[in-house]
Nucleic acid binder design. Sequence first.
DNA 1: TGGGATTATATGGGCGTCAATGGGTATATC
DNA 2: GATATACCCATTGACGCCCATATAATCCCA
Lengths: 153, 153
Amino acid sequence: MDLFVSKYINKIDKKGRVSLPSSFRNVLPKANRNEIILYKSIKTPSIEGCGIGRLEEIAKRINNLDFFSEDYDDFSTSIFSEIITTNIDKEGRFLIPEELKLYAGIKTEAAFFGQGHYFQIWEPNKGLKNTEDSRRRLLKEKKSLRMMLTQQK
Amino acid sequence: MDLFVSKYINKIDKKGRVSLPSSFRNVLPKANRNEIILYKSIKTPSIEGCGIGRLEEIAKRINNLDFFSEDYDDFSTSIFSEIITTNIDKEGRFLIPEELKLYAGIKTEAAFFGQGHYFQIWEPNKGLKNTEDSRRRLLKEKKSLRMMLTQQK
DNA sequence: TGGGATTATATGGGCGTCAATGGGTATATC
DNA sequence: GATATACCCATTGACGCCCATATAATCCCA
């Protein structure tokens, strides 16, 4: 499985360490299994994360923008300076930077939600509520959801 | 990781020394890990820096501008003639030239912002405000910051 | 197939190393 | 000699590495 799926709630210890769920670790490429990137989610009070391979793709994309445009600086600043790389120790744990914990309201526990090619980290209660809300919103759009799920090809 | 990412705020001591963040030092090629170049940012009151290897890349960027335009001379002059090389000591610290400190309004603390292939040094408050402004511009103009971050391939 | 043995995961804690910072002193530049 | 800069050493706190334990999952064999 090469996608981040399922959800897990792990504890943050006194040193601030938290285990990246084992199944998430296995999604990371063997070459860079000890480093991930984290950044503030744009739409929600949560942290998003993924392997560093993605960072190179992002860099490439930004490089294609006009270097002397204002957009270039805006993207470059909003992305590169806001992305945080963090190391995963031998036991599969990492540190969530204080600023990101504040942003997500995380204190003693972190809820990991697989999102396919990336994952989100939430304060557990907020995360669960967000899941319910998402589902509720989807069901309201019953028709389109059914189409999406059952449509062939 | 071969990109400048994240942000750090370091102190400038009485002698004017400031630590280049460890993760930034690691981006510099092992061959020239004790030397960086600094220059005034064209668009913002900040200092930009990178390894000396990037000089060629900067030259290329400028060359892509219309040679006969006013911009060409302006960029060429304001960047190349203003580039300053500075050495990094054994502890990873360097001196920010007085002229550049003045330009950026830096006094006792320097904020380092990763920008991918280069980095910026700001007076901390100005730098943080700039980050907010950048993000606000992107979101308001619906430029797809989210796409940039999550898009596949 | 049941139950003990082995392995993996999440978690806790000790300790050495490194990064950031401060300061003394030698060397150099003028 | 005065100022600036590089090298050396010291301190502090954070982080990485190592080891240990508990619980859960898996395996293995009679």
